[in-house]
Design a protein around this nucleic acid. Structure first.
Lengths: 214, 214, 214, 214
DNA sequence: GATGAATGAGATTTCATTCAT
DNA sequence: TATGAATGAAATCTCATTCAT
């Protein structure tokens, strides 16, 4: 008689939920075991301790996350950079919304120095930076995007991509916005779409025309 | 013989530093006591336990933070909204940069649900939203800013204001940017200034074309 | 397709090796299972738990050990006691050297009170004492050995018989002697042989002088 | 109101007693805490964990143990080697008898490889060897002792010095001897005294007689 | 014959806190 | 003002064992 959900998956789900609510250090394996309805020892059995659970979280998040970026970067030779960038943005928003608990936990924990997983994280984030840079720079080379330094733009984009999920509690309580609901993705995507248009694509009136007039 | 720095301040400074590095739950009072070179009992003596230390952190951060916003909101009747908003942005960036450890810790901890300080935080954040809304809406009323829904704009601004400090580790390692250094504030301010211009102030092509028609 | 070494033997060998290195309580069944490359459950299957493994160790050691003593005691009516004693000594040294890991573990564990195997051990040791006493007392009755109290002599002999194997680590590190190597047995046997001669056999000067006087 | 016995000493005494009975790995800190009538946390407070307790045991044993040997070695230039050796033997027997629990535990644990204290032990035992070698070789240089290789003699002596304490349980049950009682020291000392006389001092008959014949 | 999943019990250690001083 | 001693509670992890397969 097989179980509908494997013990290992049940533990992982419980862990994500509790890590999201109380943070990694604020969650005990007993809490997780309790929520997953298993014996605490079972967690060590499957994940080799709490640390292993943390590493599993990072893998489960970053593997798909980076795949989305990689897909669009791979499409750059064939498809317009603006389209690729926007598709990447949409996929990342959707993925994060669908995994909002894991997402919030990951982005929060990423900002803690002490975890032994630092090197793993650093390598993931370097890859992320690489893909984003490709997307921006290809657009500028093709004159789809205005020429400008990319670093701060990427940071701006990244901040917008993570903020609603990292601060979902705040969005709910203060703004009555619900990042985990499907329509939020579409609304928020419109915002970033507009940002891309204004910051990256559209030619400004003044300097260009003024010069012409002179 | 007076001490150069009071015991209480030494404890607070040690706590901020360690909370920043390892999170609230990841830091023990013994660690703090060790770093401040006092007996663990002294912490309870001054702050009534670890929780009191956490509350002190929130107070130390949000009191000045909200005062800056309040100052500029108070100036709205006399000074142009765009100026007020930009001054507020600059002050907040500077304050956060100067208190980058505390800032990082606060924004991270804010995203944890379980802290007993939830209600305190919620009230702080409601005030923040109120001030920011005033700044944006006054600008629109005065036609300094383009008319548009403000919620998502404020979220975008907030995300930009917090991201570099919350992810300072990432900025350092991945982008070689150092949010705690004084020149970062100026650079980053330029970025947000540009964002304000493009997103809030500048007339897009369409209206320009309308003018042309006239 | 038969295995070269049976699963049960593999487990036993792994157990002896680990018990020798880390002691009984310092060894886990998982360690043993790991070393024997079997599943921990298999150990319970063959030995009915860790305790069973311990009992197997005692049996494997004391059955041959006592047999050697018994053989020589049985020969006493027909062969000179000095010869029997020396042959027993040699056999015991050889046996212990060939099973040095098991030997070390046994003699160490014997000195722990708490094992549930206490009664078994006590009975083994009583038998050992019986055989040794026979060997000594027969020698005295036959005037092969000088008449003297035997208790302390047996203890001296026993201490010499066990020390090098119980403290093999020490002999290796401090004395560069290697009790598990075959030539050690011969060298060490010479020592005990000399001890037997001086302590048991040889007439001291005094009695000799007395005889002279007569 | 001062306590008659300090908490730390009470813990140490309880630990020695239990380590003696059940071995280091066979004793839990809870057992120790229970016997010392303190909270288990107090043990970590004073000894920094179980390992610290083990190290304290080694120090408490070897410091006086080696001091006795060192004292007699230091006296070698002024006093006859035979006297020094015998005095050392007596002191060591007495010290071990008076601390029979600690002694038994130490000699047993010394024969386990895995303890992190290996290097400490090794260095203690090297010193012990050095002192014993001095005592034997000085005696031979002065012609108090017969010339002969010392290694095996020292091992014989060492085995006699430790056996009764390491196997006290056995001595009690099998031989009705009680190594912790004060008169045991004297009896056993006589044995070793005789051993020294026969093995080290006394000229054998044969050469003597041969000389006479010549 | 042999095992993978799962566990109850218990091990050690850490934690925040208290209290007499 | 500040602390050393001591602790109850809880955290993580390990252990030997069982049982269905």
């Amino acid at each position: 008689m097989k179980k509908l959900i494997s013990t290992k998956d049940a533990i992982f789900a419980a862990a994500v939920s509790l890590f999201n609510d109380h943070g990694f250090d604020g969650t005990s394996v007993r809490d997780i075991a309790g929520k997953a309805d298993v014996n605490p020892a079972t967690i060590s059995y499957y994940f080799k301790g709490k640390q292993g659970l943390l590493e599993a979280c990072f893998t489960h998040f970053f593997e798909p996350y980076l795949r989305f970026l990689e897909e669009e970067t791979a499409a750059l030779p064939y498809i317009d950079a603006e389209v690729c960038l926007k598709r990447a943005v949409y996929k990342l928003l959707k993925f994060q919304s669908e995994n909002h608990q894991l997402t919030r936990f990951i982005w929060r924990e990423v900002s803690i120095d002490s975890q032994v997983v630092r090197e793993i994280i650093a390598s993931y984030l370097m890859k992320e930076r690489f893909y984003l840079k490709c997307l921006f720079e290809k657009g500028m080379m093709d004159h789809s995007f205005k020429k400008q330094p990319v670093n701060f733009l990427i940071i701006q984009l990244k901040s917008m991509l993570t903020f609603p999920f990292l601060n979902s509690q705040q969005l709910r309580e203060v703004w009555q916005l619900f990042p985990q609901e499907f329509y939020f993705v579409d609304h928020y995507y419109q915002q970033i779409d507009q940002w891309i248009r204004l910051m990256l694509v559209e030619q400004r009136n003044e300097p260009f025309e003024k010069e012409m007039l002179v």
